[in-house]
Design a binder for these strands. Structure first.
Lengths: 340, 340
DNA sequence: AATTTTTATGGGAACGTTCCCGGGAAGGTT
DNA sequence: AACCTTCCCGGGAACGTTCCCATAAAAATT
């Protein structure tokens, strides 16, 4: 902050007015003479006056700022969601301050503290891949600061949530694989204390059962979101007695890396092994074979979360809403084994 | 902000002390009795006291906040850079507030105003693809708020900059293509009012000249960063009289999309046409053929920019620094035409 | 002409913090 | 006993804004 910033008082002094009058003129209040208003506005313009929102925030006891905690900005899903939030927020005159937990519970806790002492008006949160308890949000609720969870939600907390239909879409994707003739479908299942991952796995399991197939433990691979040594995982899979004929990956990058490793081993995709991605990143269209994936309207989820939160803030209405944004299965070559 | 937030005054009241003493105790000042300090600390802990940084900022005339303006968070390069900034910033006790210009000059101007009235202590900026003039930064300089530009810099503004060696690396990449036997190298050149794009093109041109090849206008394709209709571009290229035998793309996504289109047309990569990417996204390793690209240490650039800015802020030293972070050519299959 | 109403303005508290300054009490020195 | 330090602590201004209240002048009403 520059020490010579011009304030409302400065303007008042220059015009021989009181700060109250200047404040009113600037705020578009009615109780002020048109001539003086014009003079004030002109001078403010000329001096490039910009209201000190810090002072404003202290006075108003609100910051018009939304705090966002997400696992990673590098993740395109979250990057896109942030875009949506910022769009809605700035339209409504709110700022957004973003923290990354880096998939770590400890950092997530720190993020909460940071945002709280920065006096954000509300929180939008997607929990980290390590978050198996939610007591660090107690403080937030205690201070009556509204939270909206999105995608990776904290079920037990009574607050609004924006989710996608993980269960249904995961089931649909699995059924698609089965319809293509796949009988031994491996799935990369995320941390099971996450609501999301649980639902995704449930969808997979139900699809298998409903199709009369046997659901085998060994095809369910426990993984997290920080993937490494994908080649080992692939080797493990292809060395099985009953080698899988399809893999439902945890995300597109994992899927593409697997395809790469499998191709190098001489397997054909999808003839030998079909591969299903998750997230539908733009690259899916341009790889060989094009990757079947699941598209989430991340931007809409972000918009929705921000709109929900702002609505809570503006109306004071604290009723909990749960909004579900539908994902979509995008079928491409990597799973297309049967010509219709 | 909750209306019942506990303040320093509240704590003072409860302990029968003055706010001054409580403030000192909390701040770790020396002029306070050990017993009272302990009492204060305990109560603060018990009440989950969190200092109101808004009040602090008003008082201190600084917000310990860095304003960042980048073209797009969806762009991995910038996302990574942001990660680096946040790391350095949070380590130094600074917050970061991020604005996207969405490659639009108008939004960039708005972003500057927003950050300014939010009283950020300093700015880190990478200009939009439309930014061909810099007068919207005059206000910032006039208010003595330091700016650090990174990657897409505003040359004419006398402020610190973090850049990569675009010229050298672009030249090296082109020379690599020439060494592989390519003689008709098409290049996607970004907006020429951008310092970056100009240097990149210069590197390309110098490499061609130094190798005794002829630099033909028609191989230089004017593009911007919002790419669409890549298939048209490819069709234009392959329909030339002297069809290019190499393409130096503006970024990896463009390169991959081109490869996709070219393969569908029956061309072999790199035998018929070599393709060079830019940015070295993780996916480069996993596509077929693996994509040669140029790796930028985006995180280091972000860290560097933040460190530079914070240094300016803390020391008050306004001497302009220009730091160059070296990029690296990563050779892979998409350009590898000659077996050594 | 006396009154009420309207219009325009100024004064000052409040938001929560820091920090300068003053001063009392305790202890040490001459 | 008088003085000087040292140690703690409280009072109050300041940061820039809004907003409630008071008030003077002007206009309108009686």
């Amino acid at each position: 902050m520059s020490r010579s910033a011009i304030t409302i008082i400065e303007i008042a002094r220059m015009l021989g007015l009181s700060k109250s009058t200047v404040s009113r003129a600037l705020a578009g209040h009615r109780d002020v003479n048109e001539d003086t208003r014009k003079k004030v506005l002109e001078l403010a313009q000329k001096l490039d006056y910009q209201p000190n929102v810090v002072a404003l925030h202290l006075r108003q006891q609100r910051t018009r700022t939304l705090g966002v905690i997400i696992p990673e900005t590098m993740n395109r899903f979250f990057a896109k969601a942030i875009g949506g939030m910022q769009q809605v927020a700035s339209q409504a005159g709110y700022n957004v301050i973003i923290c990354q937990s880096n998939e770590s519970l400890a950092t997530e806790k720190m993020n909460v503290r940071t945002l709280l002492s920065n006096r954000v008006d509300g929180l939008i949160v997607s929990v980290s891949g390590e978050t198996d308890r939610y007591d660090h949000f107690d403080l937030v609720s205690k201070k009556n600061i509204p939270i909206v969870f999105f995608d990776r939600v904290a079920e037990s907390i009574p607050s609004s949530k924006v989710i996608s239909n993980n269960y249904e879409i995961s089931k649909e994707a699995t059924l698609h694989l089965i319809k293509q003739g796949c009988k031994r479908i491996a799935v990369m299942a995320g941390p099971q204390y996450l609501y999301n991952s649980r639902n995704r796995l449930r969808g997979y399991i139900d699809a298998i059962h409903e199709s009369g197939l046997e659901c085998k433990e060994k095809y369910i691979l426990q993984t997290d979101f920080k993937l490494k040594r994908m080649d080992e995982l692939v080797r493990y899979l292809v060395n099985m007695k009953e080698k899988p004929d399809a893999i439902f990956a945890i995300n597109d990058m994992a899927a593409l890396e697997m395809i790469h490793v499998l191709k190098n081993m001489g397997y054909r995709i999808p003839e030998d092994i079909a591969v299903m991605g998750f997230n539908n990143e733009p690259i899916c269209k341009f790889v060989d074979p094009p990757l079947t994936s699941i598209d989430h309207p991340a931007d809409e989820m972000g918009r929705s979360a921000a709109a929900l939160l702002i609505n809570h803030l503006e109306t004071g209405n604290a009723t909990v809403v749960e909004r579900c944004i539908k994902s979509q299965l995008i079928i491409r070559g990597s799973t297309h084994r049967i010509k219709k």
